[in-house]
Write a protein that binds this DNA or RNA. Sequence first.
RNA 1: GGCGCUAUCGUCUAGCCCGGUUUAGGACGCGUCCCUCUCACGGACGAAACAUGGGUUCAAAUCCCGUUAGCGCCA
Length: 499
Amino acid sequence: MDDPKISQQLFAPRVRIAPSPTGWFHFGTARTALFNYLFARKNGGKFIVRIEDTDKTRSEKRFEEDILNGLKWLGLYWDEGPDKEGDYGPYRQSERLEIYTKYLKQLLDEGKAYYCFCTPEELKAQKEDMIAQGLIPKYSGKCRNLTKEQIEQNFREGKNAVIRLKMPNTKLKFTDLIRGEVEFDLDLIGDIVIAKSLKEPLYNFSVVVDDYLMNITHVIRGEDHIPNTPKQIVIQEALGFPRPIYAHLPMILGPDRSKFSKRHGATALVEYKKLGYLPEAIVNFLALLGWHPRNDKEIMPLEEIIQEFDLKRVQKSGAIFNINKLNWFNHQYLKILPKEKIYQYFEEFLKENKPNWDYLNNNPNYFKKILDLEITRINHFSDIFEFSDYLLKKEIDYPSELLIWKGENNLSIKKSLEDALNLIQSISENDLNQINLQSKFNKLIDSDPSYQNNRGKILWPLRVALSGKQASPGPFELAELLGKQETIKRITRAIKKLS
RNA sequence: GGCGCUAUCGUCUAGCCCGGUUUAGGACGCGUCCCUCUCACGGACGAAACAUGGGUUCAAAUCCCGUUAGCGCCA
């Protein structure tokens, strides 16, 4: 069967992702989902989610929920899926078992598939035999031509049977939208098992049946599925189904260039949500991992990516997941997203992830102000707890030497702090803001020769008194945020430290 | 082991299909400088790559073949 004409299929394509709920929703799945989504949206098609949960021993409901929630969080809405029935449901493989049985029977009846009674031990022995003879290890075809009577006899004896597909001994070529032509020698594969029994179809079989019944036009999936493709095509042809168009995406790799997995650290999306990454940043980052627009633009909201998206511009080689770049994207989105949206995300984040501290000020507005203050410094929301703990906690602690500006001593710094304290005390609570502080301090500095060309002599200890840190926002910003009372309290404590 | 996929700065990549316009472009990260009380932001500059061998050609990152390496799948 020839490949369909690629150009004809670009109208209203139907694409799907088929995640198996056997683990958390991770970056690989998310990226595949994203590319399917982009392709569907760009070409006015449908994006379908189908859950592959026939592996009952490993599938879990909470993982299915995690997948669906993850997609929603990223803003990748599907047109048909387990919780959004369309015309092609059900969308959970565990609810489609009788469908697979029907097609399995069909293949058996037509003699395109057959029962195989070989035990694992026999199979192993056969394989070793072939290797010993210098042959390619594949199924011998021993049960290929059993008579009806032999089969019935075997079943009567209670023997276990799997279902194998008769593999043609020809070569098979298919066109991949990203890689071009790929050729396999089917003779090397041998008769594959397509089901463990009439009620237990294997992956390659159920995928083919579902893709056909769900009218899938384009199969866009990870590169690790390339070796499955010829097997699936043979099953399609046995069943008389048309061939969808294939596109195999490059892998997302860990720092050691192997498939990105748990051993590389956090790969689950929920982990990044917990850290306070923005979904917009993750989507943008993921889109650029393996795809590139015509120009050199990098910061692109989802809508713009959809407009620009083209499978032809997808990279062939794998891409290492680089957290630095993700951080940069997140940082950018922290700057460009509307303030209200950032606040909204931040609030949601705080609801779930606020540490159990003795807070200086638990007012939500106070938290927002801290976010405003630190937004250029953080990679993601949870950095706030690390960078701004001194603004959140009641008690701060730091070594008194930190107060000393270069070339100064306890006495001179104590004097600086007293000057600062006097000045701040002279300002009314309501006027204690950055602008006022700035101008008042400028006047003080200009009028005192010891500060004039050495502003750090007063500004450094003031800032340390308020933050207790080597690095922090400026003292005026901090004073405004902390308020007069707390500011005075912290300066007084610093003066005491120096006595 | 068999089969398959891939190969441009440390990383993500542009350029490759349609060979000359390339002193190989951008971004992250890194370094230096400016701004500056510190950090961050912002600005300027910089270091940094066509895996390798051969072929085709007047000309190859770009086309062809081999090698090597990495990865994936199956066993």
